[in-house]
Design a protein around this nucleic acid. Structure first.
Length: 837
RNA sequence: GGUCAAGUGGCGGAACUGGCAGACGCGCCGGACUCAAAAUCCGGUUCUCGUUAAGGGAGUGAGGGUUCGAUUCCCUCCUUGACUACCA
């Protein structure tokens, strides 16, 4: 065996990462006889010389887990790719004139290398790149499927517009900054409303499916709840209120108001109606109002205000539309119900429900506030709670005519039934989720493959059923442009390439190409499908291969993607499934969200503070194995921890200690008792770590490794068989060092002579042999009245009588019991004894 | 305001289906080596009473409950974090 004691981790890393890449060690085999496991981690946006620490946090644990599964007999796929469309590369292009494809390619190379530096066990034959025309051909193809199904639609939409980015943003890409201003999530620049012609994908048509489909997944409850809240399904009623003038006559053009309510049981408490300023009825109602100018002024000011200012208004404002009234369909004859005043107020959202609400002052906090301000009647229609609670309560109906005395649910049913008979209402399901605005006025994205014909109709570049081998209409590739910057009026730079935008349709007539590109999220909606069959040029993936690999068994990623990427890709997958294009209804069986690494002082790492840890630098300093071990040792995958360099050093030390142990390795030892003990310790160790690995407790495995290393250090010599089993466990963390030691233990020197299947990482996980675990005496904790007072040694498998006898004859416990009567003797085998005296 | 998650030493965290709380690591303290320091190695380290000791008491955010026994299960409250937010 080698006598080289110098632990040169850099040399070891360079040697093995080259070898592993050459033989594509971590190959996932289609249709293997072994059971499959598809372990997925969200693919990164390449943005620098190396992966950053967030990536290391996201990838290391799943990667170690995938190694455990591979060695445990699974055919594991752990792929990687690049989500490479996006703004940073494009902004760089705007600044420098260098084509984003060129920048992206370089960044991808750097990222791939830094992942290899980390020793990640990736099947590089399956690498995908969302900006590769061979990839986005299929992104475009799937988009056309949506288009053909009527789920992609061109709409005039009020959208978020960032004057700084010169781009439209989805609702989800807008957030509030520290001061409460609405800003672009991407760069913190302010956003405003603008009407733009946009492509939308009708995710709302899948709202129910996406909501219910969560039942079939094994996602953390936080993710399930977040998606359900985002979809925001509610059950209620849509009710018609007749609109009349001062004298009870009908109003021209506005026959009735339809409102959506989840609390139709409170309809007898309606004392006012509120319509959103943007509602189309407002203009018509103004004509009939006595206070025309006042209303117009309010509507104008509400529209001029950004959403920002409106949401910041804590105090509700509104203006009464004088001379216009509603009639309560449930209570048309009472004084209140026959003449309900109507207000326009901006606390009502135009985009949710019908844009008109019925005001029930007594039981809705917002309505109450509004009613107090405008001195409107507040009539209780539900018996108040014991503490006078009134908002959102359920209970017995009062002041509700024939429905008095009914419990909330019964009242809802009964009232709806009555309204339905009269044609005044119906049950209705409602959602918060909006359709997904699916176009960006930018260059670096997938071109939308549609043509605008001269007669105003739209034609797909190619019918999806015609796409296949030899058909070159897809991908519709990004053309060259002179400047990558959007035009000043906010159009895509593609509009400046007149040669490209002028095209012919299938019948030879003139048409203009769609110049919007797809949003960032498009390519990531289906990348996990492409890993299954990355080089297929006649389909996005082969059906049989998908049947083998899908669903993704475990998907690791970031919580920031819960309501964006994770929901969008479920939407795409459900749609593909409905069209018989994927075999499973859901893409991901199980999801786990990852945590973040903070700076040493517990604050967030940021470039401006200069406290960013670069994993590449730490790899150079302490070795990749130490970094891998440290990152998993921190704590559970979803935790957030401060960085601690001393702990990283400790991990390095443990690895160096293992390296030093190789000089103690012997073929076998003669002392059979000592050998039995070593075997026992090994098998206990393996039993512990195997159970931990199955439960993804990768941090405590590191603890176990440390304990076992300490044990081995205390031995004079270590049989090589023990050593090798240890290396198998050690090797899922310290991939480089363990491989080197493994090969040395066989005296395999020259790397050229080592067969792929002889790599440590393709060996079988050690099997626990319970028979080798020696546990003949047991130290049982003994409680007296529920408190541990001492321990007693008993033989393994002792029954209650044996244990009782041992305790009653033990001098220490005789003293403890002090002659009292043992009223109860509790013995849990192998666990504990409890005496009640 | 809503939803979800979580509160364990100085710190990160362990503790399987209710059964020895604090594994492992950091930090700290003491010792060895050294002229000295760093590095390294060895020992100790929940708090508290007790002369070091033997030994006792308290203890997993607070209060209550179930149980022979609760960090773990139930109820109430407090705090923190994440997401979401005028969604009728």
């Amino acid at each position: 065996m080698s006598s080289n004691n110098n632990f040169d981790f850099t040399a070891i890393e360079n040697k093995w990462k080259k070898y592993w890449a050459k033989v594509n060690l971590y190959e996932a085999v289609d249709f293997s006889q072994k059971p499959k496991k598809y372990i997925l981690a969200e693919f990164p946006y390449p943005s620098g010389k190396s992966i950053h620490v967030g990536h290391a946090m996201r990838y290391t644990m799943p990667e170690i887990y995938s190694r455990f599964l591979r060695m445990s007999g699974y055919n594991v796929m752990f792929p990687m790719g690049w989500d490479a469309f996006g703004l940073p590369a494009e902004n760089y292009a705007v600044k420098t004139g260098i084509h984003p494809a060129e920048t992206t390619e370089k960044l991808i190379t750097d990222y791939r290398h830094s992942m290899m530096d980390m020793g990640y066990g990736i099947d590089w034959e399956r690498e995908v790149n969302s900006t590769d025309p061979g990839y986005y051909k299929w992104t475009q193809w799937i988009f056309l499927k949506f288009y053909e199904a009527g789920l992609a639609e061109l709409r005039e939409e009020p959208v978020w517009w960032s004057p700084h980015l010169k781009t439209v943003l989805a609702e989800e890409e807008v957030e509030k900054d520290a001061e409460g201003n609405l800003v672009a999530e991407r760069d913190g620049s302010p956003v405003e409303r603008k009407l733009v012609r946009q492509w939308v994908l009708k995710i709302t048509e899948y709202a129910d499916t996406l909501f219910d489909g969560l039942d079939d997944t094994d996602f953390p409850s936080s993710v399930v709840e977040a998606q359900r809240n985002w979809i925001g399904r509610s059950y209620g009623a849509q009710v018609k209120f007749d609109v009349v003038g001062e004298d009870g006559s009908a109003i021209d053009g506005v026959e009735d108001f339809e409102v959506y309510t989840t609390r139709v049981d409170t309809i007898f408490g309606v004392s006012f109606m509120v319509i959103a300023p943007e509602h189309e009825y407002v203009a018509k109602l103004i004509e009939n109002a006595a206070n025309k100018d006042e209303i117009q002024a309010y509507v104008d000011s509400a529209k001029a205000k950004t959403e920002l200012a409106r949401q910041q208004d804590k105090v509700k404002t509104g203006v009464r539309i004088e001379g216009v009234y509603c009639v309560n369909p449930a209570d048309p004859d009472s004084e209140m119900g026959s003449k309900i005043p109507v207000f326009v107020a901006d606390y009502v959202l135009a985009g949710y429900g019908t844009g008109i609400v019925m005001g029930v002052a007594a039981h809705d906090e917002r309505d109450y506030e509004f009613a107090e301000k405008y001195e409107l009647p507040i009539v209780d229609v539900i018996e108040l709670g014991q503490d006078g609670e009134r908002f959102g309560i359920t209970g017995k109906a009062i002041n509700s005519g024939e429905f008095d005395g009914l419990a909330t649910d019964d009242a809802k049913e009964a009232i709806i039934e009555k309204l339905e008979k009269e044609g005044k209402g119906e049950k209705k399901k409602n959602f918060k989720i909006r359709d997904w605005i699916f176009s960006r006025q930018r260059y670096w994205g997938e071109p939308i493959p549609l043509l605008h014909k001269e007669d105003g109709t739209i034609e797909a570049v190619v019918h999806t059923s015609d796409v296949g081998e030899g058909n070159d209409l897809l991908p519709l590739e990004l053309p060259e442009v002179e400047d990558f910057k959007p035009t000043d009026d906010g159009n895509s730079p593609l509009t400046t390439n007149t040669e490209w935008i002028n095209a012919k349709t299938s019948d030879g007539s003139n048409a203009l190409r769609e110049t919007n590109t797809m949003p960032n999220w498009a390519g990531s909606c289906w990348y996990y499908l492409r890993y299954i069959d990355p080089k297929n040029s006649s389909a996005f993936a082969d059906q049989e291969k998908m049947k083998y690999w899908l669903p993704v068994d475990h998907y690791f990623g970031g919580s920031e993607h819960t309501t964006l990427h994770l929901l969008y890709s479920r939407f795409w997958h459900r749609f593909l499934h409905d069209n018989d294009l994927v075999p499973t209804p859901e893409p991901y069986a199980k999801r786990t969200n990852g945590g973040i690494l903070l700076a040493e002082d517990g604050t967030k790492m940021s470039k401006s503070k200069g406290n960013v840890i670069n994993p590449g630098e730490k790899v150079n300093e302490y070795g990749a194995d130490a970094v891998r071990m440290y990152i998993t040792f921190l704590g559970p995958y979803d935790g957030t921890f401060p960085y601690n360099e001393s702990s990283l050093k400790r991990c390095h030390k443990v690895i160096a200690d293992v390296w030093a142990l190789k000089d103690n390795i012997v073929e076998s030892i003669d002392d059979s008792e000592a050998l039995a003990e070593i075997n026992s310790e090994l098998h206990k160790f393996v039993r512990n770590v195997t159970e931990m690995a199955e439960n993804l407790k990768m941090n405590t495995i590191v603890s176990q490794i440390m304990v076992f290393v300490t044990y081995m250090k205390g031995l004079e010599s270590l049989p090589v068989a023990i050593w090798r089993d240890f290396l198998k466990v050690f090797g899922i963390y310290a991939v480089f060092t363990a491989e080197q030691l493994w090969q040395e233990s066989f005296d395999r020197g020259d790397i050229e002579d080592i067969a792929k299947e002889d790599s440590l990482h393709l060996q079988d996980w050690p099997v626990v042999n319970e028979d080798l675990i020696i546990e003949n005496v047991l130290e049982l904790p003994v409680q007296i009245n529920g408190k541990v007072r001492g321990r007693i040694e008993v033989a393994v498998g002792s029954d209650e009588a044996n244990v009782r006898e041992a305790i009653e004859n033990d001098e220490f416990f005789i003293g403890q019991i002090d002659g009292k009567e043992i009223k109860k003797f509790i013995y849990v085998e192998g666990k504990i004894v409890n005496l009640i005296v």
